[in-house]
Design a protein around this nucleic acid. Structure first.
Lengths: 159, 159
DNA sequence: TATTGTTATACTCTATAACTATA
DNA sequence: TATAGTTATAGAGTATAACAATA
């Protein structure tokens, strides 16, 4: 299933990695973002696996919860998912009974996507799980540091 | 080649994504890390593509530059790359003439990896390119904010 | 003609199992 | 028996082209 382990690799024989000079990489913000992302992913996957959800599934379900009836173009754009990949993801969640797609009466090209009752229920659980994963990943940061981190990161990807 | 575009999707018809409520996702640090990572990746790939390098290639070349003769186990561990994937990555860079592998005389199981002259030369260029990508990705942050960001991120993935 | 969504497909990244050669 | 590295392979993520239906 390709589940990443949350804990860092146990390291017998005296932590070799401490002896490796990674100063150039660690001076690059991009590399720090990547390594942090790996940790965040692992915590998130660990939580979502229990609910049978992948990362993108949660992003979709969360967005549907707060934007019922959103169309696929807007959904794909908001979440930075390519439309063909969103289509198959929605196929899967629809088959699982978590959401419905309904053609718009006004414009029959448009699919309006909404959570089912079951999807809404799962979202409530997933929402807690996501928060739990988040807390675990940033447990070493103070509340103030978490605020700063969020602010700085959002400036990187903001339009 | 699957090159991600640096610029966000141009958005005619009045930026639909602004109308999508993403508050739950954006409150999760993990999601902010992910979205920032996508931007960082795009800038990095854009730079490295010119040199024929992938992200992991640069991480390897940088580590070899500062740790000549490092063995594959230590390299894999330091960079969080699975050994089988490192093996094929090194095969490719070795075929390109960027590095050499030499069996240790002391322990013939161990491969000692080093950059060739060509690899060292490419590293010098790649190093500048990486810095350029980094600067572009965090251009909206002040020097102080960049420092904070790096510090906070490193706390997430530090052992 | 342009747009929404879909299908088919391909490439990259990541992970595991099974193997070799050495120790 | 254990370790370093390799091969083979499978799964997930991501990207593009080509298409159908609708506007």
């Amino acid at each position: 299933m390709a589940t990443r382990s949350v804990s860092n690799n146990t390291n017998l024989n005296g932590d070799l990695s401490d002896q490796v000079d990674q100063s150039e990489l660690l001076n690059l913000l991009g590399y720090n973002v990547r390594r942090a992302y790996l940790v965040v992913q692992a915590h998130f996957d660990e939580q979502m696996e229990k609910l049978g959800l992948r990362q993108a599934d949660f992003a979709v379900i969360s967005t549907l919860r707060h934007n019922p009836g959103i169309n696929q173009k807007a959904l794909a754009e908001a979440l930075a998912i390519a439309p063909p990949n969103l289509a198959t993801l929605l196929d899967r969640l629809e088959s699982s009974g978590l959401l419905t797609r309904q053609r718009s009466a006004d414009d029959k090209r448009i699919q309006q996507v909404s959570l089912t009752q079951q999807g809404t229920k799962l979202h409530a659980q997933a929402s807690k799980a996501a928060q739990k994963a988040d807390d675990a990943a940033v447990s070493k940061l103070t509340v103030e540091e978490r605020k700063q981190l969020k602010s700085h990161l959002s400036k990187i990807f903001a339009d």
